[in-house]
Design a protein around this nucleic acid. Sequence first.
RNA 1: GCCCUCGUAGGUCAAUGGACAGACCGUCGGCCUCCGGAGCCGAAGAUUGCGGGUUCGAAUCCCGCCGAGGGCGCCA
Length: 553
Amino acid sequence: MIRKVLREHLSKAMREAGYEEVRPEVLPTTNTRFGDYYSTVALRLARRDSKQPPEKTAKFLVAKLAKKEEIFKADFTPNGFINFSISPSFLQAQVQEIIEEDENFGRVEVGKDKKVQVEFISANPTGPLTLGNGRGGFMGDALANCLEKASFQVEREYYINDTGNQIKTLGFSILDVLGIKAEDRKGLYKGEYIVELAKLLQKETDIERYRLKPYDVGGRGAEVLLKEFIKPALAKLKIDFDAFVSEKHLYESGKVAAALEVLRKKGLVEEREGATWFKAGGGVEDKDRVLVRSDVGGSEPTYFLADIAYHLDKFERGFDRVIDLWGADHAGYVQRMRAAAVALGFDDKLDIIIVQLVRLKEGGKEVRMSKRTGTFVTLEELVDKVGLDVARFFFISHAANTHMDFDLKVAREQSLKNPVYYVQYAHARCASILRKAQEEGFSLEDLSNSDTSLLKQPAELALIKALMKLPEIVEDISQNYAVHLLPTYSQITADLFHKFYEQARVIDPKDKGTSLARLALVMATKIILRNSLRLMGVSHPERMEDLSGEINN
RNA sequence: GCCCUCGUAGGUCAAUGGACAGACCGUCGGCCUCCGGAGCCGAAGAUUGCGGGUUCGAAUCCCGCCGAGGGCGCCA
C-alpha cells in the first residue's frame, strides 16, 4: 500500500529531524496538479512552533526524505504542503501485482486475529422488511464484507425482538382479522401481510386454542413471520446471517436476570418509586433509566435491561469489537446504551452506527410508512421493481447519516441509467476485450509477466493509480465504517477505465508488446471492479446481457 | 419544551480541518469504416440555508437563528 510506504518514509524523516508526530497523515490529492498524495505535517507543526514557517519545515522534511526515485518523488510548495508523485515504474509493477493477487487484492491486515460482530437489520418480527431495513441491511452486509477483507473474523447477527408488548399487539392484530375483535383496535398492525399471516396460522394450528391468549398467538405469529416472510426476503436480498439471537431466549436462559445481578454488584442499581433504575452517575437522577418496571408488579424488565444482557452476552462470546447498526428511531436510545457500556467497561469495544430512515415519496409527495396503517413499500417490492443490484448500490451510495428520500417512480425511471450499470458496464467491457483478445490469438495465461513498462500514457497511469487504492479504501472503511466510499471508488475507477479505453487501442496485432501490456491493465481493472462489486454484494457480469431478467418492470 | 441527525449546482449525492468544493442525472453542443455508444469530449450551472466565532486555513469545529427528519423519562 503506497500510502503506508509514504507515511513510513515521512515518519522516519520526522524522527530524524527531531519532530514528535510519528504517524503523519498522508492523503490522496483531489487535484493531480499537486501530485498523487500530500501531507500537511509542516502546516501542523507550524502551529506548535510559530517561529518556523511551514515552507521551511516542508523544505527541511523533503530534504530529509530518503531518495526513492523508483517509488516516489517528493516536493514542497510555498504554502507548506508536501506533495508526493508516484513513479511510473512503481505503478507499472502494480499491474502485475494485482493480477497475481487476483481475488486477494484489496486485503489488508488491520483486523488480523480480531473478532468483530456486526449486528444489523434486527427488524421486529411484526411485519415485512421496510426500505429503512434495506438501507441498514445492505450497509451492514457491505460493512461486514469490508471487515472480512480487512482480515477480521466477522460474525453477522440479527437480533429478534420476539417478546414484549409488540408481540401482544401482533397477536391482537391476527385475532382481529380472524373475527375475534380486539377491544382497542387503534394500535393494531394492518395490511395484507396480517391477513396472509392469519391464514398461515389458521392452517397450521387450532387457533381456537389461543382464543384468549393473544400473547401466544403473537409469539407464534412472530415465529411464522420470521420463517415465512423475513428469512425468504433476506435470501432474496442475498444477505446472510451467521446467527439469529432471540430476545425471548435471553429471558429463558436467565441472562436478563443475570445482567441485573451484574449491575447490582457494581452498585449501578437503585430501587425507587417501585421500579428498579440504572444509575447513570453524576448524581443526576434525570439520566437514570428504568430496568425493571413498576407498573406490572415490579417484575417486568424493560427492553433496556434485555439489551444490556444481550451486549454482555456478545462480549462473553469474545468479540474484540461489536458494531450495531440501528435505525434513526433508536437514536435517542444510543446515549443510555453508551452509559451502560461505560459503566460495564465495554465502551471502547462498542460502536453504534445510526442509519437514517428512508422517506418514501410518490411522485414528489411524501407517503407515510407505517406497519400500523399498512401503508408502506416493502423491500421485496422495491427489489422486484428495480433489481437487486440497483437497490443495493443505491442504498450503499449514501452516507449513513444523510436523510434520504426515495421515490419509487423516480427509482424506476432512473433504474436504467443507474450508476451501478456504469460500473458493471466497465467490467463487462473488460471481459469483452479479453474475450476478443483470445479470439485474436493472445494468451491471457501469463499477463502478469507482460512488459507493463510500456504503459506510459497519462490515461494508463491515472487508471493504475486508482486501481491500487482498493486496499486503502478497505482499510478506511474497516475503521470509519463509511461504506459509501465503495460506490464512489468503483465509479471513479470505471470512469478512468472508460477514458483509457477511448484513447488507447488495446488489441493491436501490429504491436504485440503494447497489446499484452494493455491487456494486463484491462485484466487488472477487471479484477479491481469485480472485487469492489463483490464487497458491495453487487453482481459483476461478463456480458451486460447477463443482467436482463434482473429488472421486471 | 428538551435531545440526536441533516441542509452543498435545477435534481440525487461526494468531499478524513487543507490547495481552485467534485461526480452522476437533467439541459445545450460535438464524437462510431476500428476491441460493446449502457461509452467519450466540451459548455452552462454553487455566496456550501442565514448570521457570528475559533484557526495560517472551515462545507467540515463552536454559538445563535431558519427549515426538514427522528426521538423524549418504566414500548421494543
